[in-house]
Design a binder for these strands. Structure first.
Length: 507
RNA sequence: GGGCGUGUAGCUCAAUUGGCAGAGCUGUGGCCAUUUAAGCCAUAGGUUGGGGGUUCGAGUCCCUCCACGCUCACCA
């Protein structure tokens, strides 16, 4: 059984006991709310200009958490907060009686949930309040939340006194962060609007929402280490998916023209300001489309989301002003690297030569990296940080893109793009490879390529190849990191600020 | 995994060269019948992240472990 860890909790536990002794049910089953805090204020203000007396006849029952209180002799002021906002309670001993006032005075704390019934009024200092006639305890809080006080200055700016800012504790106890920091609540409201707008947009483009397995016997669709788990009764090892790619494309074989999924991916890799072991991804695939079409859809979708959620396509991020309105900048990977590193990788078709050229330019890389990996290093170190405005980098080396179709007439490149905004990779798309024999060769090639890099080998997905042999329409596909998009649209510089429960080490 | 940094009361933070662990908010007791960061008086609250060491004496110096942050590596 829990025991108080400090005098604050001890006091609260004592108050809980006293409430029970007084005959108060501290955790009743039901509340009888008639108005949210906001609705109560609005109901009063709607009537007040025409008929102040009628406004004071407005009766409400509001519920919420006590976030400020001020006992002043035989009157008591408190602000209660609910999901809609705050309203002040004004309690006079004459209105509620000695017993209730004793409860208020001796058994209530900041953080408790209460229900207050009474008429609306405006206090002498002008604040719309509930003149309380009846007060009911809804939930006694035994642990104190951090106390944050606010004052709205003459200039309308809200000054805050006190804060709950310890990053680790905010993440470990997200409920406390949310309870006391309205800014945090707003981040996740916005996140929800971003995702619902995304869903609406894709529905409007005739994409069908589907759900595919998270537990997979063979993982694939990306190059990442998976999490491994086990089904006891089936005696079967399973992997948590690292992408949706291969299962979604099978559905195009099954004659859906366009599908999408929004869901969780799991990658057993390091964590950073833009990586969490589990993260949310949207992938969408359309038959008879290519990567140019996917670029069009992508830039329209992101601009639409920004417009719907923020009311503008011009956003501030990390000190930059970013314009999300289409069309976005499009440049080939080769040209982008030529521009920023003055290395034309086409002139160095062997890994050793390219490594030397990079080394001569002061760009560090692993000496035994593959050629494709080296090109990727160039992208990551030289190009990516400069891509603040939305940019599609197109046409990637074949050997780091096993699911993309070749650029016609180009032995080296595939039809692939990655999108970058704010210096971050936000998404990845291809003209999808639908030649089953080519795909099989690529699988085998990838397997060989990564064979010596311990567990990074890409397993050959025979069932996927079988599906493709039934005939897969030409198609374009795109995946976008939803968390990073949310970072961009909320101005947050770490992924942990846009995940309700970011991964933390066990303590 | 490497480097740098941080960890003191429920919250936010002080603590001089190694010399009595403090403040504000919160809490408790008191005054207060229109307050709003209410105010005034009094008061409680600590294994200074854990463990070990040096020293007459450690929040402070050393070792070690833990967590978090920044960064590098890793992450097509």
């Amino acid at each position: 059984m829990w025991e108080p860890t400090n005098n604050l909790e001890r006091d609260r536990l004592d108050k809980l006991t006293r409430l029970r002794e007084t005959g108060v049910v501290p955790y009743p089953n039901r509340a009888d709310r008639t108005h949210t805090t906001r609705a109560a204020i609005e109901a009063f203000e709607a009537v007040e200009p025409n008929d102040p007396e009628a406004a004071e006849a407005v009766e409400v029952t509001v519920c919420g958490r006590i976030v400020r209180q001020n006992l002043k002799g035989k009157i008591y002021f408190a602000h209660i907060e609910d999901g809609a906002g705050r309203v002040q309670l004004f309690v006079r001993i004459n209105n509620v009686g000695d017993e209730t006032f004793d409860i208020i005075k001796n058994m209530l704390d900041l953080g408790d949930f209460v229900q207050a019934s009474g008429n609306m009024m405006r206090t002498r200092t002008g604040e719309v309040s509930v003149l309380v006639r009846e007060l009911v305890v809804l939930s006694k809080a035994l642990s104190p939340l951090p106390v944050i006080k606010e004052r709205v200055g003459e200039d309308g700016q809200t000054e805050r006194y006190g804060e709950f800012s310890d990053i680790e504790e905010r993440y470990r106890q997200r409920y406390a962060d949310l309870a006391v920091n309205p800014d945090t609540r707003e981040v996740f409201r916005r996140r929800a609007r971003i995702i619902s707008t995304m869903r609406r947009f894709l529905e409007g483009e005739d994409f069908l929402e589907v759900e595919t397995p998270i537990l997979q016997p063979i993982y694939g669709g990306a190059a990442a280490r998976p999490f491994v788990t086990h089904h006891n009764q089936l005696h079967q090892d399973l992997f948590l998916r690292i992408s949706f790619e291969l299962y979604l494309k099978r559905l195009l074989v099954g004659m859906y023209d366009a599908v999408y999924e929004i869901g969780r991916d799991f990658r057993n890799e390091g964590v950073s300001f833009k990586h969490n072991p589990e993260f949310t991804q949207v992938e969408f695939y359309r038959a008879y489309a290519d990567y140019h079409d996917m670029m069009d859809i992508t830039e329209r979708m992101v601009a639409t989301i920004a417009e719907e959620v923020l009311g503008t396509t011009t956003i501030a991020f990390e000190g930059h002003t970013i314009n999300l309105a289409p069309p976005w900048h499009r440049i080939s990977l080769r040209d982008a690297i030529k521009q920023h590193a003055e290395i034309d990788y086409v002139e160095y078709p062997e890994a050793g030569a390219l490594y030397q050229a990079m080394h001569d330019s002061g760009i560090e890389a692993s000496p035994n990296a593959t050629w494709g990996k080296l090109v990727d290093v160039l992208l990551g170190t030289v190009v990516e940080p400069t891509l603040i405005q939305p940019t599609f980098i197109t046409d990637y080396p074949r050997d780091i893109s096993p699911f993309a179709k070749m650029v016609p007439g180009d032995e080296m490149h595939v039809e692939r793009y990655e999108m970058f905004i704010g210096g971050m990779e936000m998404g990845n798309a291809f003209t999808e490879l639908n030649d089953p024999l080519d795909q099989e060769a690529r699988f085998v090639e990838m397997n060989r390529l990564y064979a010596d890099e311990d567990d990074e080998a890409t397993p050959v997905d025979e069932d996927y190849l079988r599906a493709m042999r039934y005939g897969m329409p030409p198609c374009g596909g795109c995946g976008i990191g939803v968390d990073r998009l949310v970072m961009l649209l909320t101005g947050k510089s770490t992924i942990r600020e846009v995940l309700l429960y970011p991964h933390l080490r066990e303590r």
